[in-house]
Design a binder for these strands. Structure first.
Length: 316
DNA sequence: AAGGGCCCCTGAAAGC
DNA sequence: TGCTTTCAGGGGCCCT
């Protein structure tokens, strides 16, 4: 479910509530989630320790555990995958039955609150890694290889136009699946990949090494803009996403193509196309995002008579 | 080395 | 109405 803007929103929403708190108890209700550790093992590693910081890399959320006497630093790394939530609750608070049923790991904190990992689809993971920011540690953990190999954060200084240009030049795969590759850029998921390509006016099936310098520039800007705006709007809630306090995100109202198959493009009125690429649903405007060499799609049947205001874009 | 297919799960929505 | 099918925002693994 959550992509980088949603995970960042969750991070911000829980940081003030859990930073500096001691973990008094841990309840692992489904052992699978903390593998390869056994539940008792995981609990022993974490209980009694203080959360020094809540961090994020890509779609991974990281609870940094403070170093203490006889206990080296360590990290609890959480991946929410498609349907996961992290909720701060009052101790003992009873949620709706579906959420109760799929609550898998509970961290009981000093002060009477709990951090709960909830996942309706059981795809997520809660991992323990010794050390801090230790890429070798991540690489050695069977569930965290992806974290060890993560590409640059889209809003970090590392993610330059030059990086993108050089990376694209080396790949001949289609651009959309490449944007979902977390070792290439960290944090983009299906929604923001489609939205970025639309804003950059690039067809999702274009070959990466085929993009013109101007297009690479536009894509770089689009990725940064979309991600920054999505964070500003506290993420995209389509069905179930909520932050650490149960609040929905507002960015769904700003989506230009994602989930709009068959509806009119806000720029030109052409119906948005929905296709499957690399096994993922992909949305684009066949007129605004042309494939070179392809026939021009038919002009929209009717001119847009009204002014459409959508997010920050205003199109006549 | 890189790309495609399949799989992990459950619930909601669409289809019949 | 109710049963069945399809689909979902992620990503790891295996195969070619």
């Amino acid at each position: 479910m959550p992509e980088m803007p949603e995970v960042e929103t969750i991070r911000r929403s829980i940081a003030a509530r859990v930073t500096g708190r001691r973990i008094e108890a841990v309840e692992v209700r489904r052992p699978k989630f903390v593998e390869p550790h056994a539940p008792e093992e995981f609990t022993d590693l974490v209980v009694g320790r203080r959360i020094a910081e809540v961090d994020r890399r890509g779609k991974y959320l990281i609870l940094r555990l403070a170093e203490a006497r006889s206990r080296p630093a360590g990290e609890v790394v959480i991946h929410l995958k498609m349907a996961g939530r992290l909720l701060v609750c009052r101790s003992g608070e009873v949620l709706e039955p579906t959420l109760q049923k799929h609550t898998h790991v509970v961290f009981r904190l000093e002060g009477g609150e709990e951090l709960r990992h909830i996942d309706l689809r059981h795809f997520g993971r809660v991992s323990y890694v010794p050390g801090a920011r230790d890429h070798l540690g991540y690489a050695a953990h069977p569930k965290l290889r992806g974290l060890a190999e993560l590409g640059p954060e889209p809003l970090s200084p590392d993610f330059t136009v030059e990086y993108l240009k050089a990376g694209l030049a080396r790949r001949k795969t289609r651009i959309k699946p490449l944007l979902l590759d977390q070792s290439f850029v960290a944090g983009l998921g299906n929604i923001y990949a489609d939205e970025s390509l639309h804003r950059a006016r690039i067809h999702p099936e274009r070959r990466a090494n085929d993009l013109k310098p101007r297009e690479v520039q536009a894509l770089h800007e689009a990725i940064q803009t979309v991600i920054a705006e999505a964070i500003a709007h506290r993420g995209t809630t389509i069905a179930t996403y909520v932050d650490g306090e149960g609040k929905r995100g507002d960015f769904a109202a700003m989506l230009l193509v994602y989930g709009r198959g068959g509806e009119e493009c806000f720029s030109c009125g052409t119906p948005i196309k929905r296709v499957i690429l690399g096994g993922r649903s992909t949305h684009f405007c066949p007129r605004c995002q042309k494939l070179p060499g392809a026939k021009k799609p038919a002009a929209p049947t009717k001119k847009l008579a009204r002014t459409i205001v959508r997010g920050q874009q205003k199109v006549v």
